[in-house]
């Protein structure tokens, strides 16, 4: 019963976005789309978790199944949403499509400006989120920023991810 209800909910959640919410300005912001996924996911886990703790109506397997499936659905959705923003790679592909062929200096000339804008915007985002602070023109990590940086370093080390590009 829980899994059937959850399946219907997933269909309704996606249909609601596809038919209506993607046209609403707030939901098309990063904060809006994150809340649209996080709030119902947290509510499901909270309600089912409470039911599991208080009685036999719901099993732990059902709680984990719903949490896992919601996680897969939301993460896939948010990745595709973020990917649709395009960015550098898409800008390169679009320029090459319109021009047929291009050498590196000409691509570089067109995209360096975009890179500068992105770098400034990302640094401003980190300042706004309180992960970075500025003193006398120099930027340093705040305590939450140090935690985030340490987490990034662990993932980078584990996965041998190339950093900084």
């Amino acid at each position: 019963m829980v899994t059937l209800g959850f399946g219907l909910y997933l269909v309704a959640h996606f249909a609601l976005y596809a038919l209506w919410l993607r046209h609403v300005a707030f939901v098309s912001t990063e904060k809006g789309i994150f809340l649209y996924h996080f709030v119902p996911a947290a509510s499901w886990v909270l309600v089912l978790g409470t039911l599991w703790l208080t009685g036999p109506a719901v099993s732990l397997a059902e709680v984990i199944l719903v949490a896992g499936l919601h996680g897969i659905y939301s993460l896939t959705f948010l990745e595709l949403w973020a990917l649709a923003d395009g960015g550098y790679s898409l800008a390169i592909l679009e320029r090459l499509e319109s021009r047929g062929e291009a050498d590196e200096p000409s691509i570089l000339a067109e995209l360096e400006g975009l890179g500068g804008e992105k770098r400034a915007a990302r640094l401003a985002d980190l300042l706004r989120m309180g992960l970075v602070e500025e003193h006398d023109g120099r930027y340093g990590l705040t305590p939450p920023g140090r935690v985030a940086a340490a987490f990034i370093a662990v993932i980078a080390r584990l996965s041998a991810a190339p950093m900084g590009r």
Binding site: K118, R119, R122, L123, D125, L126, L131, V132, Y139, G140, L141, G145, R146, A148, A149, A150, I152, A153, I155, A156, L158, S159, A161, P162, M163, G164, R165
Partner: peptide, 17 residues
């Protein structure tokens, strides 16, 4: 791991360590 490898924000935090 795929987003920290391409993210400018992650690269900035990583360098500021």
């Amino acid at each position: 791991f795929s987003s920290i490898g391409t993210s400018l924000s992650a690269a900035n935090l990583y360098r500021l360590r």
